[in-house]
Design a protein around this nucleic acid. Sequence first.
DNA 1: CGATAGGGTGCAAACGTTTGCAGAGCCGCA
DNA 2: TGCGGCTCTGCAAACGTTTGCACCCTATCG
Lengths: 337, 337
Amino acid sequence: MVTVHDVARAAGVSISTVSRALASPERVAAVTRDRVTRVAAELGYRPNHAASGLRMGRTHAVGLLVPDLENPYFATVTKAVQARARAEGYEVFVADSDEDADMEAELIAALAARTDGVLVASPRSGEAELRAALVGVTAVLASRELPATPSGTGEPEVPCVSVDDADGVAQALGHLSALGHRTVGVAAGPASSWSSERRVAGLVAAAEHRDVQLVQLGTFQPYFAGGVQVADHALASGVTAVVAFNDLMALGILDRLRHRGVDVPGEMSVVGFDDVQLATLVSPALTTVHAPLARLGRRAVDLLLVRLRGGTAASTQLPVELTIRGSSGPVPAGPVS
Amino acid sequence: MVTVHDVARAAGVSISTVSRALASPERVAAVTRDRVTRVAAELGYRPNHAASGLRMGRTHAVGLLVPDLENPYFATVTKAVQARARAEGYEVFVADSDEDADMEAELIAALAARTDGVLVASPRSGEAELRAALVGVTAVLASRELPATPSGTGEPEVPCVSVDDADGVAQALGHLSALGHRTVGVAAGPASSWSSERRVAGLVAAAEHRDVQLVQLGTFQPYFAGGVQVADHALASGVTAVVAFNDLMALGILDRLRHRGVDVPGEMSVVGFDDVQLATLVSPALTTVHAPLARLGRRAVDLLLVRLRGGTAASTQLPVELTIRGSSGPVPAGPVS
DNA sequence: CGATAGGGTGCAAACGTTTGCAGAGCCGCA
DNA sequence: TGCGGCTCTGCAAACGTTTGCACCCTATCG
């Protein structure tokens, strides 16, 4: 391993000069700088991150905690986070909690110990646990708000980047309403899900403005299997359309409906949320609320870096847009009753 | 930040004792050890990774380079790698080359600089470039062999963990043959793909033992879109079945066939490779060669750790198993000609 | 010509940890 | 009582950087 000492010796200067030539070139004479950089390149000098990290107290690494890397939602976010961080000179540690809320605190601690800051995507932990896990770590949350404590509890608010859930579901409901649907089913995610709560609340609010009756189908696992379950409930409840908490669920609904011989969108309309890549690959393609997942990941990184540079970052909400595809259509003509 | 010094002072011992009490407990008296660990816990002491990394020359981190995190294949591998590494006390840096071969060398270097070793999954680089990028870094390859140089070139062989491609495609072809198919199309991946080469070669070898004629449909992008393209070629060529390089392609084929009104498996059988989660979610579900992706990721970590501990790791090939689902069936009765 | 300013460089300390070496205390045995 | 050996602990160096401080040299100005 070649160090600053080797470069210094070979270039006939002191190690301070080598360090400066590479880190702050304007502080050393042009001729020296060129010689040093040339020698460093020739010797294949690679700065030792552990050493500079120790000296400067910053690792130039960030951590990312996700509940499930195999979930296409988080895959997209992770990819975007990685790209943005790298563009800003940061490397990213990835940790997967495997949907286990109890693991989150431990993983956050592990990440925080080796990084300058951590990004926590859609944490499954309860509010208190999450707050506890986050003391002393500079973090940014994705798709989860941590309400400010009453006042001056000393807990600094953790910035959050989320998506405009209320607007998204309002658009979805407006679309269905325009198609003539009057009773639409709501398939919520797990009760502990912050996003699900927001989306359901948004639907309820939106329904008040419209001549639409909401039917709560229950809470389900936010995966394909959960959607399969939803489908039967939807059919039993007599709704003509269903809004799913997310795309994975919506895809499960679609699949189950096909197996039960129900035509989509002829007999039932289905709307998802997130617009994962897969939504375009099924048929009929899924009508869904497009959430800018990559942008969310990038924004989260940006907020974290602002905080790391001493700035103060405010929570952000990203706009969403309903994307109409094949899974939604006019309400069936013949009344069922 | 609380350091060994703080703990030492609070416990009334020297920093050496603190360090030893935590790292090699058997070397310090039981009573002292207990006091130190208690004080350390009370003070919330967290060892500084940069410092120990500097001193010991090991970071206890590994790097993982994948071509595309959004590809479910790599998502699964990444998840498994992360889990295994963490279980062994290692954290993992993830880098995504975005399918860009030219980025790989740079990313490998960046990862190698901050880690003890790196895992390279399905690199897209050519042999020479890859070999060059890997000098001086302890690495393990996944799904890619780097043939040993002629002899004694000093290049240490890079261990590789892969899947038994030849056996997989042989099983697939045997299955189709047993169903009566006599002309089967082969949809290859990119020419630069090592796996694709192996699978195509395996098919050719397997076809020789059987009364089956292979029709090379060409090389395609190993994604859904590539598969869409394949489908038209397959229909035009008159084959009754097609073996795709991977599941993503196979899913594209399925989708395109449906849009063109071709019944699967009634009129055409389709077989994939990898068995990504998605393969079970479409209908008909995809008949495919199940590759133990998670096991592959875990094994790769194991090999890397063996090397890091000074051992010598040999390349491994994992067994595969054909999983028959709905996309393959008996050859159509009526002759087309 | 002398004083001063400022650019360029080197010395050495510091970051927090691990560890070789050596000292201190104790036990047991002769 | 003297001595060897063993256990436990502390001292200090080292890992590779960055950076405050001080030095030297040259150029500029009075």
